[in-house]
Amino acid sequence: MMIKIEDLEVWYDSIPVLRDVSLEINRGDFILIIGPNGSGKTTLLKTIANLVKPKKGAVYIDGRELNRYSPRSLSKILSYIDPHLSREMPTTVLELLMTARYPREDLFKIKVDKEFINKINEIAKMLRIEDLLERRLDQVSSGELQRIIIARALLQDPEIFLVDEPTAFLDLKYRFEIMDLLKKINREYMKTMIVTTHDLILAGLYGEKIILLYKGMIRAAGDVEKVLKKDLVKEVYEIDVEEIYVNNRKILIPINMK
């Protein structure tokens, strides 16, 4: 599953949000997309997921342009994990998880396979949400919700995971927990992970291939050494940072104290 993005340009109404975006993502890659708010991270993810149509350029998966895929076949290949899941209706966690099987099942099939239910058990255990299955979605904490929607994506079992700001509202401990989980999925199941975050520290700790977006364009792309540089960060984020090394990993510490 190779993703190729060529000269992508995306507009919202009359505002350009992404420009001149070209990149290649290989199977099994762990990609972190970073940049300040409004730099186009979510838009890039949504465009790859075919939720947003580009004005110019295209996204190709395995050589085929996105709009040549039917929504159904695309749902078998990728999953966009939406942090803003609608919770207006009083649905339960289990009911949400049950929908994950739809891409792989016939539309009119009414019965549920026992295997799928076993899989739910397995994944629920792995993500420590077995006790939450009967809870209503609007009655779980943000940390729990994050694990729930990742569990759902795991059950959907696509090749590519598009994870949008999974650590945004989480306590420090859970941020690491989630990133560890995503890393694990990437390594053990060979799934392509494309994750957006605005947390520079996590970027340093977990990044393999990092893409820095600034004002809708790729400012830098490459490994941690190449992208997490003081001057780049100063230009894009407008803060001063110190580069330090912990356990051989480069971490950026903001030092904007006067």
Binding site: K46, A49, N50, L51, S70, P71, R72, S73, L74, S75, K76, L78, S79, Y80, D82, H84, L85, S86, R87, M89, T91, E95, L96, M98, T99, Y102, P103, E105, L107, Q156
Partner: peptide, 18 residues
Amino acid sequence: KMLNAYLYGDIYSRQLGF
């Protein structure tokens, strides 16, 4: 299935294939 998926949002429904 379309109805169940729809409950969680337009984005969710679409990325599930509906």
